[in-house]
Every structure is written in C-alpha cells, then in structure tokens.
C-alpha cells in the first residue's frame, strides 16, 4: 500500500531561505539569520539556546512564553522573529542584573510562588510588566485580572499574587531609597 520509493533516509528537502534580523536581546545587540516563518519563541529556545522562555501551547493561550518587547509583555509564540527588527526584547534570562535576582525573582523564591517552575518565567515577565504599567491598579483584583493570561497548572496562584505584591513593596522601597540618596 505504501509507496516505498518516497522513503529514502538520505533524501533531503530543498535548502531553507533565511532573512537577516537585528534587535536587542537582554541589552545585547544581536544579528541573526532566521527562516522567514521562524517564531520568536523557537528562535530563542532552539537557535539561541535561551530555554528560559517556555512553550506551553504555541497558540498564545497559556502565557508561558511571555517576554518583553519594548517593555510590553507579549507572547513569544505569536511573533515571528523577523518582526523584532530594531526592537528591545527581554527574556527571563535578562531579569537578573549583575548576578543579583530581580525583586520579582526574589519574592517568587521567598513566597514559594511556583512548583514545577515551567510557567514561572512567563508569570514573572507578566508580573514585572504589570508593575511598570500605570494602567493596572495595585489592588489584588486588578493584579489577578492582569495576570489571567498566565496559566499555572500547579495552582500556585495564591503565592504568585503574594509575591507580586511583595515585589511591588520592595520596588517602591528601592525607589524611595534612591530618591533619598539623590538629595543632598
């Protein structure tokens, strides 16, 4: 029934065309050759070896692949890599600075705001974006609404909320301290 003539392990398809794309990734300029249909998520994970950004659905439904593009939280699975030309992309690998965890990472650790850890990078990227988003209120209900694009199947939602609000307080304290240091 099967046509054996089409089966040949040595056979290869036509060579793949590529496009050049230049953007800033975790504060470093980067120049890449990518397939026109390559998705940002797959380029991060497979081409650049940045596995922190997770694939949970590949359909923009779970939030595990959330990254920042020009400061906005976005699903990396819904963007072609070539769309990032000239943009600033930040992944979970870019959250910590000079070896020190970001306040959101610190509060996720302190509050045990994760279990398996697979949705966690996406949760933290959404959290850091919403903490910088003046449109989103600071009350629990507003945070829960804003975070509802990030599914945590382990169900660590209670601790995630606590961690976000703790990070908000830490960031506010840091800002106050910096302002204080700035005065003569």
């Amino acid at each position: 029934m099967m046509d054996d003539s089409v089966h040949s392990p040595t056979r290869r398809g036509t060579p793949a065309p590529t496009l050049n794309v230049n953007f800033t990734l975790n504060q470093q300029p980067i120049s890449l050759e990518v397939a026109p249909n390559a998705v940002l998520l797959d380029v991060l994970r497979e081409q650049l070896g940045l596995g922190g950004t997770k694939k949970g659905c590949d359909h923009g439904q779970c939030g595990a692949c959330t990254v920042h593009v020009d400061g906005q939280a976005m699903n990396a699975c819904l963007r072609l890599a070539v769309m990032c030309e000239g943009q600033h992309v930040t992944t979970v690998e870019g959250l910590a600075r000079e070896g020190e965890l970001h306040p959101v990472q610190q509060s996720f650790l302190a509050c045990d705001a994760f279990q398996c850890g697979y949705c966690t990078p996406g949760q933290m990227m959404s959290a850091t974006a919403l903490l910088n988003d003046a449109r989103i209120g600071s009350d629990d209900a507003a945070v829960k609404e804003a975070m509802s694009g990030n599914i945590c199947r382990c169900g660590a939602y209670k601790n995630i909320l606590t961690a976000i609000q703790q990070a908000r307080a830490t960031l506010a304290d840091d800002a106050t301290r910096r302002a204080g240091e700035g005065t003569p």
Binding site: G51, A96, L101, L109
Partner: peptide, 17 residues
C-alpha cells in the same frame, strides 16, 4: 532548585540540545 527555575537555567527536556 528555586534559583535555577527562576532564572531560566533549569533545563527541562524540551530545551535541551
């Protein structure tokens, strides 16, 4: 293992190569 998970350094199967 928290810091590995929180920094993206924990290697889940799908991101190994």
């Amino acid at each position: 293992d928290g810091e590995f998970k929180l920094t993206g350094r924990a290697g889940y199967t799908g991101e190994l190569s």
